[in-house]
Design a protein around this nucleic acid. Sequence first.
RNA 1: UGGGGCGUAGCCAAGUGGUAAGGCAGCGGAUUUUGAUUCCGCCAUGCGGAGGUUCGAAUCCUCCCGCCCCAGCCA
Length: 561
Amino acid sequence: MTATDKTGEPGRDFIHDIIAADLEAGRVSTVVTRFPPEPNGYLHIGHAKSICLNFGTALEFGGRCHLRFDDTNPTKEEQEYIDAIKRDVRWLGFDWGEHLYHASDYFQQLYDWAEHLIRAGKAYVDDTPAEEMRALRGTLTEPGRNSRFRDRPVEENLDLFRRMRAGEFPNGARVLRAKIDMASGNINLRDPVLYRILHAPHPRTGTAWCIYPTYDFAHGQSDAIEGVTHSLCTLEFEDHRPLYDWLIENLPVPARPRQYEFARLALNYTVLSKRFLTALVREGRVAGWDDPRMPTFAGLRRRGVPPAALRDFVRRVGVARANSVVDLAMFDHAVRDHLNRVALRRMAVLRPLRVVIENYPEGETEELDAVNNPEDPAAGTRRIRFGRELYVEREDFMENPPRKFYRLTPGREVRLRYAYLVTCREAVKNAAGEVVELRCTYDPATRGGNAPDGRKVHATIHWVAAASSLATEVRLYNPLFTRPDPGADGDLMADLNPNSLEILRECRLEPALAEAAVGEAVQFERQGYFCPDPDSAPGRLVFNRTIALRDSWAKAQAAGG
RNA sequence: UGGGGCGUAGCCAAGUGGUAAGGCAGCGGAUUUUGAUUCCGCCAUGCGGAGGUUCGAAUCCUCCCGCCCCAGCCA
């Protein structure tokens, strides 16, 4: 396993306390956990919590974590998902080494244990149709009633179960049930189904089986087979723990794993349910599972979120048993915090406004030094080209600015980053009255950005030289939903943010950006963190905005206006 | 109204009888060739509520309130 983060303390939570106590008391010698996804969909940010908890905790205690696919329902699972999940777990930074398993690896053992239960008189084959079985199960407040097949002789159960396995019966004809207690207040103990008939080919076992164990019959036993010591799952499985324990106690399993539950991760302005995510893709509301607006690993990766930032985010959130909804700002912070330290700085003008430096010699250019990352001196410097014609950001000029706007306006001097102090002399307008060009003058004595006479300017703005700049497309992303609890009113699609994607096609980048690799994070100075999208082609770069820089000016404007 | 959980600041979250950590957000201020970063300060007489036990309660007891999960041959 990898992915130790130097930054930040390891998580301290009740799971750690339990494990530490188990180690201390000698109840376990090596900690073994597992991340057990069902291969029926793509991983999303919610899974990151489970992955980090399972892999991270094992790592911290010097144990190991298995990657185990819970592939007990061939009607919903696909190899494609298995591959995607493996890729995504690796991307997050974890390695299961030799410990890749599948519940389907244990189908024969599980089957044998089912027969063991039958022989012990603790499981029976039930012919009751599904509808009727549901009615017999009772309700939340009324006890269930025994099936009329509940007291079948062991030999008959064995014979029927073997014939189920042999494929003699159609789907749904019979099931194998544990014989526990139809009157239990815990519905999971009302003779839960252990095996069902499913004539469906399995991604891994093919047509070898036509009966498949349920989650309850597979999970705990798989844990036991693998020697998992701490089986960590989410809160909704809490009611299953008595069944988990019952099976472990009534089967000759080689170990005694323990299940512990924690609250799953939820984020505001975000939807994580498989059903909703699937609907977004299927209805074309997003471009696909890897749309940068999606909370999937694929989406986050394409958007440029570094795995280390995701791990840090999960660490900050913590692990507890209270249902909670984490503020997206927490995620944003983790992303910015990481990117600030590692991203190279570059200049890029998203909405260009042409600038002509009137007193700069025609046809001449020069090179200036620019720092690659002020947070990391080792990143060095680069040369950037300056010339008579430049582009600056449209919003860095205002003809009639409000108080406290200290960027370009007629008559004002500002600094062009790493270049010169320039003064705006005139705004040239078109017939429609729109500003189309700025006429400025520069002070040749301020090369690099400092005035020999010590005079100060209020603002430093970014720019690119018109002649050498690269034309590019930039995609800006905003939250996919307009409300913190999308879908709460019953119509998820009505809460979609119409401005979740903004495409800018006339952007101008400094030439150094031509070398950026897909997924590589860079900071466009004063704007945010970006990375080239896979849609980029030679000569036609496309950048995604991972996240904007904090902008107290914009915030103040929004608050004041 | 069965069973199982959970309620500490706007959002996460420590704390488990000795007088409310930390982070995010927010608000001030300093530094700044990114209105970024960084730094400093502020931000719960209060722990869902009411009683009780105790010298002392977020922590123990009682009652109450609220929220979440479970009636798949899904996981």
